[in-house]
């Protein structure tokens, strides 16, 4: 049963990849592009496909998969259908950290480290705040997330004010909207080892993560919930920040994809892990392909994902499928 779903999603991903590879702003027919691709970097078109489009496509797939799976993990461990990196303030935290790094240091690695530190800090503050207040657990987390977002964006504005308006401000502004236009093989290789290791560990831990959803009950059958929770949150923050440091904020994927997967396949966390990875990849790749081809200029990715996200939420909302 699972195999059919995997083949179905895998097939879709492959088709999307081919379409994404063949179409771009360098006007050429699909057949021409295909032959150029086969001939390698001999032609300009071949060069574009091998050195610009292919690493970009692979990066987008990894980013989509990571964003989706991190959203799914947050939703599972907090038992909160509204949880995701965006909602918990992790994304804003990462953004703030990375913006500080853009202004202060000119090294990509620093961007990643700062994004990680600030992202993790934002999640921790959000959790701390949510657990200290009485009331609805689900709402508390969302409201705490909103507070963290507000704080982070306030500081972000201060950073923007102090940034050099001719160089840094533009970089921050454009990077905040998210985009994959400057992905190279080098950047892709930077992220692959970390992403592979962390996703593999999380994949192996999927049954334990699922048990966390039982809440305190899980203690009684021997799960050390606190330790696993902390480990999983740290790994999640590392994954999220590594993506955000390179391609900026890509909103909505973490909330949207897990819900689509849940509604379509109706399987639990344990069985939907790979489906989420693939689904996230497909969704983000489709959005990225649209953003590259829709207009003569490249539309920032978050605009596309936000529009999709809004439409999807409207459908869920009107159909009464959001139950809290």
């Amino acid at each position: 049963m699972m195999k059919k779903e995997l083949i179905c999603l895998g097939g879709t991903l492959l088709i999307t990849m081919i379409i994404s590879l063949l179409y771009g702003r360098y006007g050429a027919g699909a057949l021409e592009a295909a032959s150029a691709f086969v001939h390698g970097t001999a032609t300009t078109l071949g060069k574009i496909m091998w050195q610009i489009r292919l690493p970009r496509i692979l990066f987008v797939i990894i980013a989509g998969g990571i964003l989706a799976i991190s959203g799914q993990i947050f939703q599972t461990i907090f038992k909160n259908p509204l949880a995701s990196g965006d909602v918990l303030g992790a994304t804003s935290g990462c953004a703030l950290g990375a913006a500080i790094a853009i202004v202060s240091f000119n090294v990509v690695y620093m961007r990643w480290i700062m994004a990680f530190v600030f992202g993790l800090m934002a999640i921790c503050c959000c959790l701390l705040l949510a657990t200290k207040v009485k009331g609805s657990r689900i709402l508390n987390l969302v409201i705490s997330g909103m507070i963290m977002q507000a704080i982070c964006s306030a500081f972000l504005m201060i950073i923007k004010l102090t940034a050099d308006p001719y160089q840094q401000l533009g970089t921050i502004e454009f990077w905040l909207m998210g985009g994959f236009s400057d992905i190279t093989w080098q950047k892709l290789m930077m992220i692959i080892p970390l992403a592979t290791i962390l996703i593999f560990i999380l994949y192996k831990l999927r049954w334990q993560i699922q048990l966390l959803a039982f809440g305190q009950e899980a203690n009684s059958f021997g799960v050390d919930t606190q330790v696993i929770m902390i480990v999983v949150i740290i790994m999640n923050a590392m994954l999220l920040s590594s993506i955000i440091a390179i391609c900026g904020i890509v909103s909505w994927v973490g909330l949207l994809v897990p819900h689509i997967i849940r509604l379509t396949f109706k399987v639990d966390f344990c069985h939907s892990f790979i489906l989420n990875l693939l689904g996230g990849g497909i969704f983000l790749l489709m959005c990225d392909t649209i953003s590259r081809n829709l207009f003569a200029f490249e539309v920032p990715i978050s605009i596309i994902t936000s529009i999709f996200g809004a439409v999807f939420l409207i459908i869920l909302f009107v159909k009464g499928m959001i139950d809290i």
């Binding site: 009684s220 109706k266 639990d268």
Partner: peptide, 15 residues
């Protein structure tokens, strides 16, 4: 000790 709670956390889509 094993535990049968009064208020149970229902895990989504679990069998």
């Amino acid at each position: 000790f094993a535990y049968l709670p009064q208020i149970k956390n229902i895990v989504d889509d679990i069998k």
